[in-house]
Design a protein around this nucleic acid. Sequence first.
DNA 1: CCATATAAGTCTGAGGAGGTGCG
DNA 2: CCGCACCTCCTCAGACTTATATG
Length: 597
Amino acid sequence: MSEGNPLNSTREQRDAKRKRLNSSKSKYDSENTIKRMKEESEDSSGKRKTVTIEANEVKQEVKAKRKRNDSDSEVDIKKQKEDSSNKEDKELWTTLEHNGVYFPPPYVPHNVKMKYDGKEITLEPEAEEVASFYAAMLGTNYVPNETFNRNFFKDWIKVIKKSKNVYNLDFEKCDFTPICEYLEQEKERKKNMSKEEKAKLKEEKIKLEEKYGYCLLDGRKEKVDNFHIEPPGLFRRQVQPEQVTINISKGAKIPSPPEGHKWAGVVHNPTVNWLATWKDINGKIKYVYLAANSSLRGLSDEKKFEKARELKQHIDKIRNDYQTNLRHKNTDTCQMATVMYLIDHLALRVGNEKDTNEEADTVGCCSLRPEHINLIPPNTVKFEFLGKDSIEYINTVEVEDQVFRNLSIFMEGKDERKDLLFDKVNPQKLNKHLSSYMTGLTAKVFRTFNVSTTFQTLLKKLTNDDMSIDEKKKVYNQALQQVLDLCNHQQKISTQSYYIDPRISVAWCLKHCVPYDDETAPNQDHLKHSQSDSGGDKDKSIEKGGSDSTITYQEQPQYAQQVSKILQDKKIFNKSLCNKFKWGMNIDADWVCKLTH
DNA sequence: CCATATAAGTCTGAGGAGGTGCG
DNA sequence: CCGCACCTCCTCAGACTTATATG
């Protein structure tokens, strides 16, 4: 663990090497938006990718063969798997049936002729389709961009060369406006469609939803999240069934691929909860999952919030430790402590390493560079960087003197723009360290924990029993907004606050906004704790932690039913609102308000 | 406004590279 | 000095969550 050991230097060398390698990859441009739309063409990076994929496949085959040789039969492999999986290779389901994924219908040519050098030319359907994608972009600010045009043109020529109407084209002489005009007309026509036509479209959509939108999970009908395969686009070819792997239980009817096609594979893997998977054009893996309100997702949501609640029992020790270690003379330990301080206080994301060239330059805590912070003596730090989704994080905070000192030390002698502020810490190390306090503790849990805790504390502090419903609604929104600000969320007052334990909302709502008769009231024993000390000392009820202070997930649907029944009987609660009151769904102030009116 | 689409994050585990210790 | 067993650390694909954009 000593500093400057040979291990570190070799690692640094390797990193440097990799960086050099990366930067030698050809790239056309640096603009984010266009990045996504580029290079499906055979430039060096594309080639490299395919090579690695092939290499991996070969490796995997070799491995599989070795395994087969070792154990001679498939049965043995299974046994081995079962034996080794007694850790916690949990099966998520026993049976799973579904109808696969939906592919967009094949392209229907419009036969509108574009012009070349003033003359009409005829394109084969595929070439016409790509030309139309481009034509639809006329008038956007992509079109004056040379890189964009070059990439499009290269792609398009490739498509054209496949067809029988081979043209030798010069981009400058292409005129896409006829197609563009046609597309505009079509748009207009669709807008003005008759009621019957619209109804028909809707009906078709519903039909699709019935077929693909549900699956049978352990015999229960459950909703599927997004079963559509993305339609093709300007730089995106249609994903074919041959690329798609289906996951389904053994013996279940295998969904039929579109006519004339077959699936890449059919697997029976109960340890994952995707129904289908494929790779998109950039090699990114896509999945079809169950819907957010399905039992599996609900369960994993529950686990998430349980983890956050569990953290309450360890947070004191964790905080004590990093406070002490802020002064540790070992740089590794000291950096780790500083990172933890920031994650705990500012709810920063962990900041995984990203591919420097391919992606936007966004950062999280571990990937901060000196340029992202500004130290203002005596102890103020101004953070200014792009976070997830390139959302600006600008925050000026006062930190402890020791943190301030640490940051200035970590900045010393570093390249503002290239070096990492915390060069001795990475997300893996951090999470490994965190998990030594509590299994499953990762940086992400701190966000859930911080937000839920803050929310609950604020609600308790701001609410008092004599408030009118409107005042309560206002207070709820205030608390929610503060919590969203903590996360640097852009969307204002969101109904889907993934970070807030919905039990907090439910508990608050039941306590403050739902009028009960004694006879009809659901059992509120679980709430006693939070009730008894409301108005009293804020922190204790939260810190106490155990599942006795708020409703548990198992109880929540039951509560929902009871509460909604009461409210429906009293005609202050309708069905659509009832649907909101389900697993994982947070409750917003409007909902609370509607509840009681 | 809401639901949906899908991009962009986090985190894990397997397997490889390379170090270390021992006969 | 080699060769092997063992360890540790790193990397990356894969799986799953969280966000904003969009229609």
